[in-house]
């Protein structure tokens, strides 16, 4: 079943001069098994929305339904434990949360905490290490001796070890070089297709939205202004400009090319591959 937000309001520091309403009467669904991108300008409410997905924040009013569990302002914290097994959140710079002596122990922490025996937890940790592409020889090392990209893999494995059905990613590639970024994004794509994980990706990288997501939710000032396919979101550059959003590089390039009047794209390309294919098509037809 899908994740559903129904008329959610969220107010930070209510009853103080700093009162700030981050989510406004927000109603939106994240389909099960989808790869949903959440995009929006800084301060649009992305992080606030994300923290509602596993009950780190509870709505000030309205309700959030995840995995048959409905969370409202009055839901007790102790009722949220079950939910947190379903939804794993990878925060920005997740390697900051590493703490154990060895990589294996760090990954095994959550399953142990959720009641697995040490042997079971280690077994799970080994599987997860494999899943995120950590080589066997680093498992007994301190996580702090690893490179940035590998530390991030350890942190992600630690979250996957809870066996969530929904994986929430907040700017998961920030600070990685493009190669590391590509590898990590490929890994998520694989988890999505092989393990049928629902993925919720918060990002500013429109190319990642174009390359990986099948659904996109656009937020502005705490409200949903679009919930549709990436194709639809990127089809109107004027609309994007108005809402302070960027285009994927290939789409932007296609518009520039179209501006010259020499080419008209029937369908806007979102990736380099699509762009090259449409260009070849156009050239094949003998141009204009």
């Amino acid at each position: 079943m899908s994740i559903h937000f129904e008329k959610v309001n969220y107010i930070y520091q209510a009853d103080t001069p700093f009162r700030h309403q981050a989510l406004k009467n927000l109603t939106v669904s994240i389909p099960t098994g989808s790869y949903t991108a959440i995009i929006g300008h800084t301060g649009s409410g992305k992080s606030t929305l994300l923290q509602h997905l596993n009950g780190l924040l509870k709505p000030s009013s309205g309700s959030v339904t995840v995995a048959d569990k409905t969370i409202t302002a009055v839901t007790k914290n102790k009722e949220l434990g079950e939910l947190r097994k379903h939804v794993g959140i990878v925060f920005q710079f997740p390697e900051a949360q590493l703490f154990e002596e060895t990589v294996l122990k760090d990954i095994a922490f959550a399953p142990k905490n959720f009641g697995k025996t040490p042997a079971e937890a280690e077994q799970i940790a080994r599987e997860m290490a494999l899943l995120v592409g950590l080589p066997e020889e680093v498992l007994q090392n301190s996580p702090f001796e690893l490179s940035g990209g590998q530390m991030r893999r350890v942190a992600i494995a630690g979250i996957l070890a809870m066996k969530p059905d929904v994986l929430v990613l907040d700017e998961p590639t920030a600070g990685l070089d493009p190669k590391g970024r590509h590898e990590i994004m490929q890994m998520f794509a694989q988890l999505h297709s092989q393990k049928q994980l629902t993925i919720v990706l918060v990002t500013h990288q429109m190319d990642d939205v174009a390359n990986y997501a099948d659904h996109a939710i656009v937020l502005e000032k705490g409200e949903v202004i679009a919930s549709t396919s990436p194709q639809e979101v990127f089809k109107d550059p004027q609309w994007l400009l108005k809402h302070h959003l960027a285009l994927p590089k290939a789409t932007r390039f296609a518009y520039e090319l179209q501006q010259t009047g020499k080419v008209v794209f029937e369908k806007m390309p979102l990736t380099e591959k699509e762009l090259a294919a449409s260009l070849v098509d156009l050239l094949g037809k003998g141009g204009n």
Binding site: D177, P178, K179, A250, E272, K273, L275, A276, L279, V280
Partner: peptide, 17 residues
């Protein structure tokens, strides 16, 4: 890519073409 940058967009497009 080995130097920690992405390939420039124009180079990517050239490769695809």
């Amino acid at each position: 890519i080995e130097s920690g940058l992405d390939i420039p967009f124009s180079e990517k497009l050239k490769n695809e073409l």
